[in-house]
């Protein structure tokens, strides 16, 4: 649908990324991720035709994006930009109808066909109930849905979103990304969004575009980029470590030395014990090799701790952690 060849983007002869050969396919949801300042917004703005590339071409449905007349382009490509929209005193419905701008007459009158498109856009995004509400009274999540409905009312083949989850809380982020994924399937629209929610992107995107600070772009399935180490490399240079095995950033630096953990492999109690131990600074192993400091998870009410200084039983996680951190005789050696 949307393709680029040897695209170089940037501002004022200061290139940000070179020789990008990209492709967005119908019914595909792609997440654009990368550290701050890597040029995600610039790439999106270039693909949206809002900013000229330094070199190379962007093609939409076979035609050069920058030669498509603005009104024609608006019928094929819609954007949701970052930041709150202050459009004054408009109802959500009136805002969504603005998406029909490229289709309506000089007065902006809606034909039944336009009304149908608006209705469908609001149904798809689940914001019909908001129709009569003024947009300045909506929550950030509701407002973002309305802005997406407005974009859908353009009936685009390509939908570009710049950090649509930025102001939302976690449940709203999950909901929004699920919504976008469902939209890509139901409307066969190609969806590209930039986001900082790496965890969510890894789980939900059909494909990732990973833009590094040095201007390299890695393209692949989320799992591929995790497996081949591209994610780790891009974010390592930013001073954060990416844990291949668990698909998440490492938040804690191990400072207390190794500890071995034994418990039911799929056990929830074991998983959370693991996290707790990591949080207080242990490097946790669970490959069957016993370390001097060892924890057995018997069930979610019973932990057994073995240290070079002795053994103890703990009815709660808090008491286990206390024993591991308390400055007493059986304190494990700090490393």
């Amino acid at each position: 649908m949307l393709t680029t060849s040897s695209l170089t983007i940037g501002y004022h002869r200061r290139p940000i990324a070179f020789s990008l050969d990209l492709e967005l396919r119908p019914a595909e949801m792609v997440c654009l991720i990368g550290p701050n300042g890597a040029g995600k917004s610039t790439l999106l703005r270039t693909l949206a035709g809002m900013q000229e590339p330094l070199s190379g071409t962007v093609r939409l449905g076979g035609a050069d994006l920058f030669s498509i007349p603005a009104l024609e382009l608006a019928k094929q490509l819609a954007v949701v930009l970052t930041g709150r929209v202050e459009a004054g005193n408009l109802s959500a419905y009136a805002l969504v109808t603005l998406g029909r701008h490229p289709y309506t007459d000089w007065l902006g009158r809606l034909t039944p066909r336009d009304e149908e498109a608006v209705r469908r856009a609001m149904q798809l995004t689940g914001c019909e109930a908001l129709a009569a509400r003024p947009i300045h009274e909506l929550s950030d999540g509701e407002r973002q849905k309305v802005m997406i409905a407005r974009a859908l009312a353009q009936e685009p083949k390509v939908l570009l979103l710049d950090e649509p989850t930025a102001f939302l809380d976690l449940p709203r982020r999950v909901e929004l990304l699920q919504l976008l994924k469902r939209l890509s399937r139901e409307t066969r629209c190609a969806v590209l969004l930039s986001t900082h929610d790496l965890d969510l992107a890894l789980r939900i995107a059909d494909k990732l575009w990973l833009l590094s600070s040095s201007g390299e772009l890695h393209i692949g399935l989320p799992e591929e980029l995790a497996l081949n180490g591209a994610l780790a490399r891009v974010f390592q240079s930013e001073g954060v470590e990416f844990d291949h095995a668990r698909g998440a950033f490492k938040v804690h630096q191990p400072v207390c030395g190794p500890i071995s953990l034994h418990g039911d492999r799929d056990g929830v109690a074991t998983a959370w014990t693991w996290r707790a131990l990591e949080r207080i600074g242990y490097e946790v192993h669970n490959n069957g090799v016993r370390r001097p400091v060892h924890v057995d998870v018997l069930d979610s009410h019973h932990w057994h701790l073995t240290t070079p200084h002795g053994q103890s039983d703990h009815p709660t996680l808090a008491s286990l952690l206390n024993a591991l951190t308390a400055p007493s005789g059986n304190e494990p050696k700090r490393g």
Partner: peptide
């Protein structure tokens, strides 16, 4: 009303 960027994306010169 939506700002210059959105207006452009709606096909407005």
């Amino acid at each position: 009303l939506l700002g210059d960027d959105y207006a452009r994306s709606l096909g407005l010169n």
